[in-house]
């Protein structure tokens, strides 16, 4: 067993808009092990980004609130820290990179300025030393001619180069955990391959763990050890990536895997898809959140929310029928059904 460095327990996040309360994250728990990567996947609106930003307490305080749970890092509960203490955690122990590299850099400052700002905010270095460190960081993330590039503005960089700069900033203080929120979604395929390779390299060099948020299962297979499938603000399945790929348990995960188009997909047969759309989280969900889209749903699914259980060691699932004694038979073509949307 490797030791876990970050433990999220029963995290609850609510968004308030007028009198409507949306439960964006509803009881999410996971543990991040040292030198391991965890991938969080799910459709848009499933709460994966909110979970990640909540770890750093970066969700907007005016509308959102963490209403319950614990986030344990090195024996401390991050939710109980003061803002001043939290500021030391951000960037220093846990860093984050975001989806869109063109909006996450400040256009009016040079890349060097933004790097030096981060370094000096956390470390007692002179300007000169910080600049030296900034150049080293740019070199580390594979930016050619860093001495020159450091004086350039973000608009002079391409998308892939900007994401490299973002990674350099995130790594400025040798964090042990890096949260990457869809780091390659805005990039082209050939550049995506470069960035993923870079992240893998850096992880080995710097001894980090990565929390990778993505809707692209391909990225998870390539980068991660553990996978967390989220649906409607909850974890519906979590396992080692190989286990999940070879033996997915939750019907939603089956649907996700089946709707991926792979090279063996027969181009004359229709594609599998999950009918309907995710539930509105501003209403109380009584039963299983997936019940309206599940081809296997039964009475109990409408009335009782399934608990997250572990039928086999290290592989958890939230479904009434995936117990040790009872298993759902995976029907072929369960997700290939007409094209009409239920209204």
């Amino acid at each position: 067993m490797s030791e876990s460095i970050l433990n999220v327990k029963n995290l609850q996040v609510e968004f308030k808009s007028g009198s409507i309360i949306t439960r964006a994250v509803n009881g999410v728990s996971f543990a991040l092990n040292k030198n391991e990567n965890i991938g969080i996947v799910g459709e848009s609106g499933s709460g994966k980004s909110v979970t990640a930003t909540s770890i750093l307490r970066l969700i907007p305080s005016s509308s959102a609130k963490i209403t319950g749970g614990e986030i344990i890092l090195n024996g401390r509960d991050l939710l109980k820290l003061s803002n001043r203490e939290m500021r030391k955690v951000r960037g220093n122990e846990i860093s984050m990179i975001f989806q869109d590299p063109s909006t996450s850099l400040n256009p009016v400052f040079t890349v060097g300025n933004q790097l030096i700002e981060t370094i000096r905010a956390h470390k007692k270095l002179t300007k000169k030393e910080a600049k030296q460190r900034a150049i080293e960081l740019l070199e580390l993330v594979g930016i050619p001619a860093p001495e020159k590039r450091i004086n350039m503005y973000p608009h002079e960089f391409s998308g892939g180069m900007r994401q490299r700069v973002m990674i350099a900033i995130a790594l400025a203080c040798d964090p042990k955990i890096l949260i990457a929120d869809e780091p390659t979604t805005a990039l082209d395929v050939t550049v995506q391959a470069q960035i993923l390779n870079l992240m893998k390299d850096l992880q080995e060099k710097l001894d980090m763990s990565i929390i990778m948020i993505t809707h692209d299962l391909g990225v998870v297979w390539e980068m991660c050890d553990q996978i967390l499938v989220m649906y409607a603000g909850r974890v519906v399945e979590s396992a080692k990536v190989e286990d999940l790929y070879h033996n997915p348990l939750h019907p939603y995960t089956w649907g996700l895997l089946e709707s991926q188009i792979t090279e063996s997909q027969d181009s004359h047969a229709p594609l599998a898809s999950i009918p309907g759309s995710p539930p509105d989280l501003s209403y109380e969900i009584k039963g299983c959140p997936f019940v309206d889209r599940c081809p296997y749903a039964q009475d109990i699914c409408h009335n009782e929310a399934p608990k997250l259980i572990e039928p086999t060691e290290g592989h958890a699932v939230a479904c009434h029928f995936q117990t040790e004694t009872e298993k759902l038979e995976r029907r072929e073509n369960a997700y290939i059904n007409g094209d009409t949307i239920r209204s």
Partner: peptide, 25 residues
Amino acid sequence: KALFSAIPKKNPFEQKERIILKGTV
């Protein structure tokens, strides 16, 4: 060739060798 080498395989754990291009467009 480089573009097509990035297509995910049916079984992602037997990923073939990828051609990674230098630089950007």
